Amino acid sequence: MDETGKELVLALYDYQEKSPREVTMKKGDILTLLNSTNKDWWKVEVKITVNGKTYERQGFVPAAYVKKL
């Protein structure tokens, strides 16, 4: 869990989004888990830094590609 009590997951593999509802992740990324009720796709939040500014983006990743921490 992070400092706000949200559950975290670890990306076990790289994943490139294939639709606007998904998010890209790299092996080793730590993501915030938002919803894991679907056994195949989990909703996560990723933080992306571009030119020194951090953005948060929500989307789905394959559940088999992440592990709860």
Rank of each mutant, 00 (worst) to 15 (best):
M1W: 14
M1H: 14
M1P: 15
M1C: 13
D2K: 04
D2L: 11
D2P: 15
D2T: 12
D2W: 07
E3G: 15
E3S: 15
T4V: 14
T4I: 11
T4L: 13
T4N: 14
T4F: 13
T4S: 12
T4G: 15
G5E: 13
G5S: 13
G5Q: 14
G5M: 15
G5P: 12
G5K: 13
G5Y: 12
G5L: 12
K6G: 10
K6Q: 11
K6P: 10
K6D: 08
K6M: 11
E7A: 08
E7M: 15
E7P: 10
E7G: 11
E7K: 10
E7R: 12
E7Y: 13
E7S: 12
L8H: 08
L8G: 03
L8T: 08
L8Q: 13
V9D: 00
V9C: 09
V9F: 04
V9T: 02
V9I: 07
V9H: 02
V9Q: 00
L10D: 01
L10N: 02
L10I: 13
L10A: 06
A11L: 02
A11E: 00
A11W: 02
A11H: 01
A11M: 02
A11K: 01
A11R: 01
A11Q: 01
A11F: 01
A11D: 00
A11P: 02
L12C: 06
L12N: 03
L12D: 01
L12R: 04
Y13N: 09
Y13Q: 10
Y13P: 00
Y13W: 12
Y13D: 08
Y13M: 13
D14M: 03
D14R: 02
D14P: 05
D14E: 05
D14T: 05
D14K: 03
D14S: 08
Y15T: 01
Y15G: 00
Q16M: 13
Q16L: 12
Q16R: 13
Q16K: 11
E17M: 15
E17F: 05
E17H: 08
E17K: 14
K18A: 10
K18R: 13
K18H: 10
K18T: 14
K18L: 09
K18I: 06
S19I: 04
S19W: 06
P20F: 07
R21A: 14
R21V: 09
R21G: 14
R21F: 12
E22R: 04
E22F: 05
E22D: 05
E22G: 13
E22Y: 04
E22T: 06
V23M: 08
V23F: 08
V23I: 15
V23P: 01
V23R: 00
V23H: 02
V23W: 03
T24S: 15
T24V: 02
T24L: 02
T24N: 06
T24D: 04
M25P: 00
M25W: 01
M25T: 03
M25D: 00
M25Q: 01
K26R: 09
K26F: 09
K26I: 08
K26A: 10
K26G: 04
K27F: 04
K27L: 04
K27Q: 10
K27C: 06
K27E: 08
K27A: 13
G28S: 02
G28N: 06
G28P: 00
G28V: 01
G28M: 02
G28H: 05
G28T: 01
D29Y: 04
D29L: 03
D29H: 05
D29E: 09
I30T: 06
I30N: 02
I30P: 01
I30D: 00
I30Y: 06
L31I: 08
L31M: 11
L31Y: 09
L31G: 05
L31S: 03
T32Q: 10
T32M: 10
T32A: 12
L33T: 01
L33V: 06
L33F: 03
L33D: 00
L34I: 14
L34P: 00
L34V: 14
L34G: 01
L34T: 04
N35L: 07
N35S: 14
N35E: 11
N35T: 05
S36P: 05
S36F: 06
S36V: 06
T37Q: 12
T37A: 10
T37V: 10
T37C: 11
N38F: 07
N38W: 06
N38P: 03
N38V: 04
N38T: 06
K39C: 08
K39S: 13
K39A: 13
K39P: 15
D40S: 11
D40Y: 09
D40Q: 15
D40L: 14
D40M: 14
D40F: 15
D40H: 13
D40T: 14
W41K: 02
W41Q: 02
W41F: 07
W41T: 02
W41S: 02
W41L: 03
W42T: 03
W42A: 03
W42P: 01
W42N: 01
W42V: 06
K43P: 01
K43T: 07
K43W: 11
K43V: 15
V44C: 04
V44A: 01
V44E: 00
V44N: 00
V44G: 00
E45S: 13
E45G: 12
E45D: 04
V46M: 09
V46E: 04
V46I: 14
V46L: 13
V46A: 15
K47F: 12
K47I: 10
K47V: 14
I48E: 10
I48Q: 12
I48Y: 15
I48A: 08
I48R: 06
I48N: 07
I48M: 09
I48S: 08
T49A: 11
T49F: 12
T49G: 06
T49L: 12
T49N: 11
V50M: 13
V50N: 08
N51I: 05
N51W: 06
N51T: 06
G52V: 03
G52W: 05
G52R: 04
G52L: 06
G52A: 06
G52P: 02
K53M: 13
K53E: 12
K53T: 15
K53N: 13
K53P: 04
T54W: 09
T54S: 11
Y55F: 13
Y55L: 11
Y55W: 13
Y55S: 10
Y55T: 11
E56D: 12
E56G: 12
E56R: 15
R57C: 05
R57G: 03
R57S: 05
R57A: 07
R57W: 02
Q58L: 06
Q58D: 07
Q58E: 11
Q58C: 08
G59W: 01
G59C: 02
F60E: 04
F60P: 00
F60G: 01
F60S: 03
F60T: 03
V61F: 00
V61R: 00
V61C: 04
V61D: 00
P62T: 01
P62R: 03
P62Q: 02
A63V: 06
A63E: 03
A63S: 13
A63W: 01
A64H: 11
A64T: 12
A64Q: 12
A64K: 14
A64Y: 08
A64E: 12
A64G: 13
Y65T: 07
Y65K: 07
Y65P: 00
V66H: 01
V66D: 00
V66F: 04
V66W: 01
V66T: 04
K67W: 08
K67R: 13
K67M: 11
K67V: 15
K67G: 08
K68F: 08
K68S: 09
K68A: 07
K68G: 04
L69P: 04
L69S: 03
L69A: 05
L69H: 05
L69K: 04
